[in-house]
Every structure is written in structure tokens, then in C-alpha cells.
């Protein structure tokens, strides 16, 4: 493994990765959410510009795809969380021979650090 000592200092990534530096900070996350809110609002408004043709009446509801997607996505996330309580077991549940326990053999890999 090639954990390098440098952390989130600016010059640590080559282009084009450096553009995104900081996106995974808390502040970056907040900005991303607000951008998304703006985009969603814009798209929801855009839906009223023309007529939405659908196969079913439900599709004609205002911004149906927006709120339906939003609610279902949250519901799926929460459902998965609940299911995980039932289905999640220790990693070695199926015994030590399980391939998911093994490290991937190095002969099949090309482990290299960026400046190597």
C-alpha cells in the first residue's frame, strides 16, 4: 500500500484532479448540496415551460419525477439500512476460504505510487 504522508494540501494532485481539491471537505459538501438545490429548483421550474407528456396521469403532476425520485431514493436508502440489520454478518461468515477475505494477489496488480 502506498499511503503517502501528505494530506490535503493544495499541490498534492496533478491536473485535472487538482481542480476538485477540497470537494471532499465539509465545506465542499455544503456547497455541493446548495448547488444541487439550485439545479433541482431550476429543473423543477423548467418543467413548467413546456407540457409534460406521459403515459400515465401521475406523470402530469407538478415535478412528479423530482419529488418521486427524491422520496424513493431516501426510502431506498433507509430500507437498505433496515435490511442490513438482518442480512449483515461478520466478514468470515462463510468460513476462511471465502475469496472476499483474501487480499488480491500482487501478481495480478500493478501497485505504484504517482511519483514512482
Amino acid at each position: 500500500m502506498t499511503g503517502s504522508p501528505e494530506t490535503r494540501t493544495s499541490a498534492s494532485a496533478p491536473m485535472p484532479g487538482s481542480i476538485l481539491l477540497g470537494i471532499d471537505t465539509a465545506r465542499g459538501g455544503r456547497i455541493a448540496i446548495w448547488c444541487l438545490v439550485l439545479i433541482c429548483a431550476g429543473l423543477a421550474a423548467g418543467g413548467f415551460v413546456g407540457h409534460i407528456h406521459g403515459y400515465f396521469e401521475i406523470e402530469e403532476l407538478p415535478a412528479f419525477y423530482g419529488w418521486f425520485g427524491f422520496l424513493i431514493a431516501l426510502a431506498l436508502g433507509i430500507a437498505a439500512k433496515i435490511i442490513s440489520a438482518f442480512l449483515r454478518r461478520k466478514e468470515d461468515y462463510y468460513g476462511a476460504g471465502s475469496p472476499s477475505l483474501e487480499e488480491h494477489p500482487a501478481s495480478d496488480l500493478g501497485l505504484e505510487a504517482p511519483d514512482a
Binding site: E59, G66, W67
Partner: peptide, 25 residues
Amino acid sequence: TIVQLQLVAFVALAFAIAVKRGLLP
């Protein structure tokens, strides 16, 4: 086109909120 964009954008928003609030497993 617009409904598909709406769908993706709102799901993305839901995802972002869920990540922030820890609603995802």
C-alpha cells in the same frame, strides 16, 4: 429530457442529504 434531468438531480440531492444525515447504510 426534462423529467429525466429532474429525476437524476433530485436523487442526487437526496443522496447528498442522506450522506450528510447518515441515512444510508
